[in-house]
């Protein structure tokens, strides 16, 4: 220890301290700061690039998923459209059928009604004609018959019998 203190050189200590502090400051300005900044920037750049790559990958995945989804949707839509068309067709056919049926029924009904009314008219006319004819016949018969009293009575009686029928 004695030897150490004896060997201690104030001058060397002084120079070492001054030079070393100067070296720290100079290196800080000219070397360490630029180097550490460059290294930091590079590391950040690498991290960013990795991040971006990851994002791109995710986006790519999203895009693919989107595409698939859109395709699926399109397919569903197409199916739906086809189904709808089919349904429309069916419904149209059904509607047409029912309408036609209704129309036909109506026509038939009308025809029936016309036939009925025609029939009535015809019957009425026939009745009228029959009545006229009968009256004419009756007139003729009457003229013929009324010439004889007995015959008249008999006729009235017959007629009365007939009426009962």
């Amino acid at each position: 220890m004695d030897k150490l203190i004896e060997q201690f050189s104030l001058g060397l200590f002084f120079w070492q301290l001054i030079l070393f502090v100067a070296l720290v400051l100079l290196l800080k300005k000219f070397a360490w700061k630029p180097i550490l900044n460059a290294v930091n920037d590079r590391e950040e750049g690498i991290l960013k690039a990795l991040d971006e790559a990851e994002n791109a990958r995710k986006e790519m995945q999203n895009l693919t998923a989107d595409n698939e989804r859109i395709l699926k949707e399109a397919r569903v839509e197409r199916d739906a459209m086809l189904k709808e068309a089919r349904e429309m067709k069916d419904s149209m056919i059904t509607e047409a059928k029912s309408e036609a049926h209704a129309q036909a029924t109506k026509v038939i009904d009308q025809a029936k009604a016309t036939i009925e009314s025609e029939k009535h008219a015809a019957i009425t006319e026939i009745k009228n004609q029959v009545a006229e004819l009968s009256l004419e016949i009756a007139e003729k018969v009457m003229r013929n018959e009324l010439s004889d009293k007995n015959k008249q009575i008999k006729l009235v009686e017959d007629m009365l019998k007939e009426v009962k029928l």
């Binding site: 104030l10 001058g11 290196l27 700061k33």
Partner: peptide, 27 residues
């Protein structure tokens, strides 16, 4: 009071300059 530029001081200066040269070039 002895502030001589001794052999060691010269060598410290030399190493300091050497480091400055190397690391500033690296920077």
């Amino acid at each position: 009071m002895d502030f001589s530029i001794t052999k060691n001081v010269v060598f410290i200066i030399f190493v300091g300059l050497f480091m400055l040269l190397i690391f500033s070039r690296m920077a």
